[in-house]
Amino acid sequence: MKTTTRPYLLLAACGIMLAGSAAADEFTKADLDRWQAEYQASVDKGEKLFHGGLKSKNTVSCDQCHPNATNIHPETYPKFQQQLGKVVVLGEMINWCIMNPLESEPLALDDPDMVDLQSYIHWERRGVALEPGKH
């Protein structure tokens, strides 16, 4: 974690210095663009993982069943996933797919690959209202 957060903190510090006397809780349009770009980099990585980039033991990839990450419904999590018998977050369902259709090893819920996958999945679903719990 440390190694990944440090450059980010440095960047943020530079941003504040460049902005001169701005208070710590203020930020510029440039900040927003840069932060969005940081997120988009995760989306891009997730898009590749989703389309065959995951180490899938049987070569099956997420997009085979979910073109453009459809039919995942990230806006409905957490929800009671009847087939897992409990209320789960999206990452748990992603792991189910990795373990079953992909016949591969699940990811830790905070694994960077898991984060990137969710970045992509959410991005393809942007603009859809939250409906937690919806089946």
Binding site: F80, Q82, Q83, L84, G85, K86, V87
Partner: peptide
């Protein structure tokens, strides 16, 4: 995968 058919709910 037992729970797929042998259902447990919340």
């Amino acid at each position: 995968r037992c729970v797929s058919c042998h259902t447990i709910e919340a």
